[in-house]
Amino acid sequence: MSEAKRIYQANLDAVSAAVVAGDFTKIRQHIAIPNMMSTTDSEIVMASVEEFDIVMMDFRSELLARGMVDYRRTCLEAHFVAGQSDMVAGRHRTEVILRNGATLPPYENHSVIMRIDDRWMGIWLQAIMDNTELQLLSPDIAAAQAEARRMLDRTGHRTA
């Protein structure tokens, strides 16, 4: 296994175990804030610990409501970003195992992790699925941020 893939998988394993355990402090040890997450139909920027915790609690509640007993993410590929020994980009598959032994439909993700203060931290994640399929992103926060972007687009003050 390449060094990039080992680093990426270790981050996936740590965050997955913390999600199952509901240990939001442990999750924050492996995911940087601010953090950007997106699905094919939504995106969210978590700019504070409070916002991050809300998003993670909402996501875990969604998984538990569906019967989650395990949350597994497997690295499919990972590489150091060209010229950046402190940044790894990769792709992984997520599986949610339910109480009855079934699984939710697996989905793929793209993610970037970065070494920050000697720890590998997730800085960006894109789930290749609609947020309506599995609420990865808090609908209320995502909707409020989308509305703010729409307002900026209408007034012409958006710079991106």
Rank of each mutant, 00 (worst) to 15 (best):
H30M: 08
N100E: 11
R72T: 05
R93S: 06
V19W: 01
N35F: 14
E95P: 03
A47E: 15
G90N: 10
I97Q: 11
D70E: 09
S85T: 15
V88P: 11
D70M: 12
G83S: 12
A65K: 01
T39Y: 04
T39K: 07
Q126V: 12
S38L: 06
I54D: 03
D117W: 06
E51F: 02
Q135G: 05
V112C: 15
S38E: 06
A146M: 14
A89H: 10
T103L: 08
I123N: 04
D58Y: 02
Q126G: 13
M46T: 14
R119A: 15
M68D: 03
H110W: 07
L137I: 03
C75L: 03
K26I: 05
E108V: 00
I141Q: 09
A102H: 10
T103G: 04
L98I: 03
S38Y: 04
V55R: 12
R93E: 15
D117N: 10
L63F: 02
P105A: 10
Q84D: 14
V55F: 02
I113H: 12
S16I: 01
D130P: 00
L98S: 05
R28H: 11
N109Q: 13
Y71F: 13
D130S: 05
A18R: 08
M129N: 09
T103R: 06
D41T: 15
P139Q: 11
T132K: 02
A148F: 12
V81P: 13
M37I: 03
N100A: 05
L104C: 03
T40C: 02
L64Q: 10
M57K: 14
A18F: 04
A146F: 05
R28I: 00
R60V: 06
S138Q: 13
T132Q: 00
D130L: 08
S138E: 08
V112G: 10
M56Y: 07
I27W: 07
S16M: 08
H92G: 13
I141W: 12
A47F: 12
N131I: 06
V96T: 07
T74K: 12
M87Q: 09
L134A: 04
E133V: 02
H110I: 15
S85W: 09
I31C: 02
A32M: 07
R99H: 05
L64I: 01
E50V: 09
Q126S: 11
Q135C: 02
S16Y: 02
M68R: 02
T40D: 07
T74D: 13
M56F: 04
I54E: 07
T132C: 00
L76I: 13
T25N: 14
R28F: 08
R93G: 06
G67C: 00
A127K: 06
T103Q: 14
Q126M: 11
P34I: 00
V55A: 07
V96R: 04
G122N: 10
D140H: 01
S38W: 01
M57A: 08
D86E: 03
F52E: 06
R60F: 05
F24P: 09
I97C: 02
R66L: 01
G101S: 08
M57G: 01
A127L: 08
A21L: 05
T39W: 04
N131D: 01
R60W: 03
V69C: 00
A32R: 15
G122S: 13
I116F: 07
A146Q: 13
M129K: 07
A143E: 11
D23W: 10
C75A: 14
D53H: 10
M37Y: 03
